[in-house]
Amino acid sequence: MDERGLHRLIGTIIAPERLEDDCAVIPCGDRLMVATTDMLHETTDFPVGMTDWQVGWMATAVTLSDIASMGAAPGQVLLAVGLDRPERLSGIMEGARDCCAAFGAELVGGDLDAHRELTIVSTGLGTVEAAHLVRRRGARPGDVIAVTGPLGEAQAALAGYDRHRKELLEPQPRVREGRALGRAGVSAMMDISDGLALSLHDLLAVNDCGFSVDTARLPLPAGVPESEGRELALYGGGDFELLFTAPPGILPVAGVMTHVIGEVIPDRGVLADGKPLERRGYLHEWKG
């Protein structure tokens, strides 16, 4: 069973609509608070060769990316560190602090414990006006499908294209872009941490329409042969770009790089070049 399957189990215990988005949404005065949490492990999430500073940066960036996908402004981040060696803590915390500072958040606390394997849980809070909140649900036939930047770069680094090591080890959450797209009125949005194909299927699960992309329009990783780059762009994880749908008249949005890659269609399904697109990407799985 994979993690999406387990989400369905959780949906029998708490309201399933709570599981549809990258963040929980909580009323907070005249605004909305968004809250998210991510767990990362050394062996599955931190590539070999990362510095402790990069580990702290990445653990924070993935959480800020979730906040960005809701069109929200980041506020506070808490970091719970299951630490394998005490001498690593300083670099991890400095990386987390610097990532927060770079994107307008504040590192305000957390927890500390001893673990055999380095494990970090990052929790982020943000706020957004109700009118500018963007959920995964909301795509409509006739909307365009777009992304905020090149896809497949992180996976390209794992495949040996070292020019993309920075994209892999120091991901840049699209906080400014997410807020601008929310204010512009995009109809649905999420981040692409698990790959474009899987993200499109995630959108399919909560919308009453379909998604059709033209692979010739995908922004591919530089320096990678086109056929390999297209495969990485469709299925590679770790990019943290934003995937969104929007009425055609909204784009371009000032100050935001966007690449239109397809359109929302009436019939439910995910298509690439007119053919069904495999539901494949980065998934945590349990065997047996």
Score class of each variant (00 low, 15 high):
11 G>H: 01
11 G>L: 01
20 E>S: 08
21 D>E: 13
26 I>A: 07
27 P>G: 10
30 D>P: 06
41 H>L: 12
46 F>A: 10
57 W>Y: 05
58 M>G: 07
62 V>E: 04
73 A>I: 12
77 V>K: 07
79 L>R: 02
79 L>N: 05
87 E>P: 10
91 G>M: 13
91 G>K: 09
93 M>N: 07
97 R>T: 12
102 A>S: 14
103 F>D: 00
112 L>S: 01
112 L>A: 13
119 T>G: 10
125 L>C: 05
127 T>E: 08
134 V>K: 06
137 R>H: 07
139 A>M: 11
149 G>P: 02
155 Q>Y: 06
158 L>I: 13
160 G>Y: 15
165 R>D: 14
167 E>I: 06
168 L>P: 00
171 P>H: 04
172 Q>R: 13
174 R>E: 12
178 G>V: 07
180 A>D: 10
182 G>D: 06
182 G>Y: 03
182 G>Q: 03
185 G>M: 05
186 V>W: 04
187 S>T: 15
208 D>T: 13
214 D>H: 09
227 S>P: 06
227 S>E: 15
228 E>H: 12
238 G>C: 05
239 D>Q: 12
241 E>I: 07
242 L>K: 01
242 L>C: 11
254 A>N: 12
258 T>Q: 13
258 T>R: 06
260 V>F: 03
279 R>H: 08
279 R>F: 02
283 L>W: 02
